[in-house]
C-alpha cells in the first residue's frame, strides 16, 4: 500500500511540477515546502531577468571549443592544442555556450543556450609550440624500436568576459 501511495505521489508531481520546470534551476530553492517559491514559470523567468539586470555576481559558462568543453569565467586562461587560425591580439566570441550561470541561477541549454543570450569574449595571447613529446615504440625481442618527436601548436586564450547580455526569451533572433 505504501508503494501505491508512493507511486501516486510521484505521478502527481509529474503532472503538476511545483514552481514550474525552471524552478530546479534556482539553486537556493529548497526541495520541500518553502513559502517563497514562486508558483508559475513566468514568475521564475521574471526573477531571473531581474537578477540578470542587477549584474551583481560573477558569471561562468561552459563553452564548447575545438571539440572540448571548458568551464570559463572572466579573467581565466585556456590553452587549446592543434591547428587554430586566429592570431595573437585577435578578439573572439565563443558562441557555443552549453550552460551559463551566476551565483543565483543557471541557464542550461539543450544542448545550446539561446544564441544571443550569453556573450563570451576572449583574446588570443600566445601561439607557440608545446614541449617535445616523445612517442616511443618497442616490440621486445623483435628488434623493433621507433622514436617519434612531436610538438603541438598551442594557443593561449584569455577570457575577457562572460556576460548574460539580454533577458531570457528576449534575445535577438538573427545573431549568426
Amino acid at each position: 500500500m505504501a508503494m501505491i501511495r508512493a507511486g501516486l505521489q510521484r505521478l502527481a508531481s509529474v503532472f503538476s511540477s511545483q514552481g514550474g520546470i525552471l524552478s530546479r534551476l534556482i539553486t537556493q530553492n529548497a526541495p520541500s515546502q518553502n513559502t517563497t517559491v514562486p508558483n508559475t514559470t513566468k514568475d521564475v523567468i521574471a526573477t531571473c531577468n531581474k537578477l540578470i539586470e542587477e549584474r551583481s555576481s560573477r558569471n561562468f559558462a561552459i563553452v564548447h571549443l575545438l571539440g572540448k568543453q571548458w568551464r570559463v569565467t572572466d579573467g581565466d586562461l585556456l590553452v587549446v592544442e592543434g591547428y587554430w587560425p586566429p592570431n595573437i591580439g585577435d578578439k573572439i566570441t565563443l558562441d557555443k555556450v552549453l550552460l551559463a550561470a551566476t551565483k543565483d541561477f543557471s541557464l542550461i541549454g539543450r544542448p545550446l543556450v539561446q544564441p544571443g543570450l550569453v556573450t563570451v569574449t576572449a583574446t588570443i595571447i600566445s601561439k607557440g609550440l608545446s614541449h617535445t613529446r616523445t612517442h616511443f615504440k618497442k616490440k621486445r625481442r623483435k628488434q623493433y624500436m621507433r622514436i617519434n618527436f612531436q610538438r603541438a601548436q598551442q594557443t593561449i586564450l584569455r577570457i575577457n568576459s562572460v556576460e548574460i547580455a539580454n533577458r531570457i526569451n528576449e534575445a535577438p533572433n538573427n545573431v549568426f
Binding site: 569565467t73 572572466d74 579573467g75 587549446v80 600566445s126 607557440g128 609550440l129 614541449h131
Partner: peptide, 20 residues
C-alpha cells in the same frame, strides 16, 4: 613572435588557469 616566452621549456600540468 607569437610565443609569450619559452613555452616549450616546461610541461603544462593543466590546460586551464582560473583565479575563481
Amino acid at each position: 613572435r607569437t610565443q609569450q616566452g619559452d613555452v616549450a621549456g616546461a610541461r603544462l600540468k593543466k590546460y586551464q588557469y582560473t583565479d575563481y
